[in-house]
Amino acid sequence: MEAELENAIEETGESEQYLTFIMADEEYGVDILSVQEIRGWEPCTQIPNSPSFMKGVINLRGTIVPIIDLRERFGLKTVEYSPTTVVIVLKLETEKGNRVSGIVVDAVSDVYTLAKKDMKDAPNIGEKMNVSFIKGLINVNDKMVILLELETLVGTDEIENFAEIASMVSKNSVAE
């Protein structure tokens, strides 16, 4: 398998390294170049009127970094945070410059070198399911890994959409 993979990479020359983590028994992967650091969970400061997956902000050596609970973001059952709960701090390049944000996951798993050509597109399951944050699916050692599209996952638009709805809801409730 390993040798096969190496060959495949050599042939195409296109490969990427992914950091994977476990959440609800599924393995997810993010581009390792956008991972800034991995740290333990610590309590955050809540941001008022933000969506529930937005856990709040933490102080990361003087920078204010928003933290997103990926379980809630994906609509999975939430679990109590344990000592193994980790925050993966991601650094994304956007038009407005670098954005740093953290995602809460169950546990970090492994680092894989994957060939681009092996990546399968995310299945399209009708319009109701939003699969825009899935970059693709890939098989590693007979296990499926879900590769995440970070820009849509923690990018501005998505957060803004959710936050707008949230603030609209809260405004209405205040007005009532």
Partner: peptide
């Protein structure tokens, strides 16, 4: 810089104990 503008909040700061307010 990392999140977005929040209505009613002009910014954040770091308190003596390292938490964000």
């Amino acid at each position: 810089s990392n999140y977005k503008k929040v209505e009613g909040i002009s910014g954040a700061t770091i308190l003596g104990d390292g938490t964000v307010a």
